[in-house]
Amino acid sequence: MNPNVFRNLSYGVYVVSSLDGDRNTGCIANSIMQITSSPATIALSMNHDNYTNSCISRTGKFAISILSETSDPGLIGCFGFRTGRDVNKFDDIDYTVKEGLPIVKDSCGYIVCRLIDKMEASTHTVFLGEVIDGDVIGSDPAMTYSYYHKVVKGKSPKNAPTYLPQEDEPASDSGAKWVCSICGYVYDGDIPFEELPDTYACPICHQGKDKFLKTGDS
């Protein structure tokens, strides 16, 4: 089987939020789909290791912020490459509250769901949520996972359903590349990487210049 065929399926990029007691928490997800129209029902796949998974199970509700092509890529680093067990991911995020759950303002829409059922797979939980609120924010197109890989130049977190192990392999094409060891962002700016200031930070996960590794031929 060639796992790359799954990349031909359509995915978005979303911040899924819930509550850890009174504290906001959330993570990046890409496997979300509407499965019925009346009542509107959403299916969400989330890895067992994601802290947000247990929070959804405890609170019985979750919200989806739909990222757009103009959303700050740092949102993906914040929610996709850190764990809510250790940090409050919403500390520096501009958000509003709908139906008691945090919604990222830098998005093109949101959906709030009440958990009605769930199914356990070997590594993931599939949550079913009945939609209780939702709206469009602005007019920017939604970010697809293809756009994230090809334009934003990020990689899938290892907990994502679409993660492929070869994403962590060094680039095989000619020419040296500087790659963020945290989120996989490939620097392709006009200024040689060595000449960037020491204050340079990855645009996705905001890690420092020292977290970049040189791959490929020199």
Rank of each mutant, 00 (worst) to 15 (best):
D188Q: 15
T125V: 11
S146G: 04
C108G: 04
Y185W: 13
I116V: 14
C180P: 03
S181A: 15
D117N: 11
K177L: 11
I111G: 03
G175P: 04
S156A: 15
D106T: 11
K105V: 15
T144L: 00
Y148H: 06
I132L: 04
D140A: 15
S156G: 08
D188V: 12
A171L: 14
D140V: 09
A171V: 15
L128C: 03
G129N: 09
T123D: 09
P141D: 14
V152P: 04
V136R: 13
L115Q: 10
K105F: 00
D135M: 07
E169M: 11
K158Q: 13
T144N: 01
D135H: 09
T123K: 05
I111M: 07
D117Y: 00
V179L: 10
G134M: 07
I111A: 03
C108L: 03
P170W: 10
G189N: 12
V179H: 12
G175V: 03
I182F: 01
D188M: 13
Y163Q: 08
A142F: 09
D168G: 11
E120V: 08
G175L: 07
D106E: 13
V126F: 09
A121F: 04
D173H: 12
I182E: 01
K158I: 12
S181W: 06
V126S: 03
N159S: 15
V104R: 12
P165F: 08
V136K: 12
H149N: 11
P102V: 08
A121C: 03
K155D: 14
P157M: 02
E167N: 11
S139R: 02
T125N: 07
T123H: 03
I116F: 00
V104W: 07
M119T: 10
Y187G: 13
C113Q: 04
S174Y: 07
S172L: 14
H149E: 15
V104F: 11
R114H: 05
I182R: 00
Y148W: 10
D135S: 13
C180T: 03
P102Q: 06
R114A: 08
K155L: 14
A171W: 12
T125D: 07
Y110S: 02
